[in-house]
Amino acid sequence: MQGYIEVDTEMERAMTQVIDAFPFRGYFDPAISGHISIAQTVQRFLKPGSRILDFGAGPADKTAVLAALGYECTAVDDLQDEWHKRGRARQLILEFAEKMGIEYIPLDGGPLPDTEPFDLVMLHDVLEHLHDSPRDLLNGLLERVRNEGYLFVTVPNHVNLRKRLDVLRGRTSHPQFELYYWYPGNWRGHVREYTEGDCVGLAKALGLKPREVRGAHHMLCKVPPRFRRAYLAASRFMPSTRDTWSMVAQKPPGWVAKPELDDTEFRELTGLKSWGELAH
């Protein structure tokens, strides 16, 4: 398996197992995707056998790599992306998860069932799709994580090198307009992408301790092959220009969710001197 990330025999085996079982051919290229990067990040913080909740798991491709490496995995998704609803996609996803030993919980409008605490909850390419603050969602998920467990998120870098160059050339840094225009139903594409400061701010707002915040390459497929070597070389010296931010933050003992700011905190944040100013 050739790529920019070095892998050991165990990872090779896990990736081969997932690729052989995955029902959607061509969905991901293991040589240039984030699957290995995500799995290696989890390995740095948790041993096999640890309990992982993958929220927004989609077809459970990333979840499956971890399951193949010996982690106890639960996947959650509403499976309402347009392609999930076409043909037999939903059935194939659930059958794949079962084959890989993953507990898959489709969200059909109800709450998540009660479970034993997880060692880590992860959300990959999820937060950028939310139309509202991730506060309530993440607080709820963190309540399912043990003390000193982890939150692991990856999000697109809003100021990656490709987007910086596009803006300099007068192009948009947002999703393709035609895709947005023709998307059926409610828009489920990117709403708000993240920067490094946003990731650190997210951990702080949630009351977590950042353990690792780094730039990563999860979407090299969007870089034309003839430019890929130069792109990798440039981003090696400027990690903040890589396509993805990867953050692992730890839940401290005694953690309590903070659902909202008090009056003083909100006024300081917004610059309002009094609530009366809200009327103007």
Rank of each mutant, 00 (worst) to 15 (best):
F177C: 10
P184I: 01
D29N: 12
E193L: 00
L141D: 09
E212I: 04
V167A: 09
Y150I: 06
Y183K: 07
G58T: 08
G197Q: 12
S33E: 05
T244M: 05
D54F: 00
N139F: 01
R164W: 11
C199I: 01
A89R: 15
H129N: 06
F237Q: 07
S37P: 04
Y180E: 12
P259M: 07
A97N: 12
N186E: 14
D81T: 09
K273H: 09
D125V: 02
L79K: 02
G26S: 01
V167K: 15
R162I: 08
H129W: 04
E265N: 02
R211F: 09
N157P: 03
K163H: 10
V65M: 09
E260R: 13
E72R: 10
G87H: 06
G185R: 04
L272M: 09
N186R: 15
P106C: 00
L46T: 02
D78P: 11
P59K: 03
F28M: 06
L66S: 05
N139S: 12
D119R: 11
G70F: 01
P59H: 13
E116L: 14
Q17Y: 00
R236N: 13
M1D: 12
E95R: 15
V126K: 11
G49M: 10
D136I: 09
A279Q: 13
R13F: 09
K209R: 14
E95F: 03
G109F: 05
Y181S: 14
Y71H: 05
L220D: 10
E128I: 02
R226Q: 11
L137W: 04
T63G: 15
